[in-house]
Design a binder for these strands. Structure first.
Lengths: 163, 163
DNA sequence: TCAAGATTGATGCAGGTGCATCGAGTGCGG
DNA sequence: CCGCACTCGATGCACCTGCATCAATCTTGA
């Protein structure tokens, strides 16, 4: 029952893979050269920073970030080691815990957004008109089998007053 | 001199990252469940199989696949360990070598294309019309800073006689 | 012709990821 | 109340990646 994909679909697939890895590489390199940790750290700090009281259950973080459980667990280890977050006991469920972002964590997240947003502008914004960016998003969404909400970085709001 | 990216660019960036990793995961899972090795092996076997006499210098493979040198070196190790390729001495440059695909390698590459093409159809082809796939390719290309040729898998030709 | 520099490919090390599994704790059905 | 299935989070292992560096060889230019 397996049909061959069209050459158009195959071509789109190949470009998706290659362009993404290339652009991601560029952005990660820029961050690294500016002395920052990997993007995954930023994502985690961002999620924590926008949680109601700066804390989340690891399992929530895992679902927000769409990464596997063990990966979350070890990412938290690293954040804690660096003093960017701390573990707090969870009284209502003794299996669990809360992870709370520290001041250092919030501060790093903000500083990273400076470099990160500049990289997005450099590698995406400057190459695509807003209209084309919207078209690209729309097409990608169709591939994203129940891909969830796709929240924007919180800082985007700072530059876009109206909602 | 760093401008903030538009929310549209940021949104496109986020979707690009998330959709790609999601779709890639799905495809890799399908291949793994069918008992096949990772996609990188397929890419290498494909490049080798379409080289003039089934052999390439590692440095060529590296440039085709856009992966770092040490990565190529170890990928070749694994292919050789599995009997999918073999190293041959390079008489004209004693530093170098040739890597030649074996019959087992060619055969695996063909079998993998069966599962691989089915996965592309399932996760990309079935979700996008040909016209939309072309639009997506075009938009992605604009991000692909001097991204090179983007060759299609050779098997595509088997199903598309006219060029 | 020969020294300096570039290129080819391998490798030790540190760290990240996937997988399987584990121990602890919860909650539900009987 | 008990037991069983499930959820939460951690961890040992294998493997893979990035980085730095190495030895061998080639190339260039004085």
């Amino acid at each position: 029952m397996k049909r061959k994909p069209s050459t158009e679909a195959t071509s789109a697939w190949i470009r998706l893979m290659r362009v993404q890895s290339r652009v991601l590489d560029c952005v990660e390199q820029d961050l690294k050269k500016a002395g920052f940790p990997p993007l995954a750290w930023y994502d985690a700090l961002l999620e924590l920073s926008r949680a109601p009281s700066g804390e989340l259950r690891p399992v929530e973080l895992e679902r927000q970030m769409l990464i596997p459980q063990y990966s979350t667990s070890r990412l938290i280890d690293r954040l804690v080691d660096e003093g960017l977050a701390c573990r707090r006991e969870c009284k209502i469920d003794k299996r669990g815990q809360f992870v709370e972002i520290t001041e250092a964590g919030r501060e790093l997240q903000k500083r990273m957004w400076g470099a990160y947003s500049a990289a997005i502008e450099k590698y995406v914004g400057s190459k695509l008109s807003d209209a084309d960016a919207v078209k690209l998003s729309g097409l990608l969404d169709r591939l994203g089998c129940s891909c969830g909400e796709m929240k924007l970085p919180v800082h985007v709001n700072e530059t876009t007053p109206s909602r």
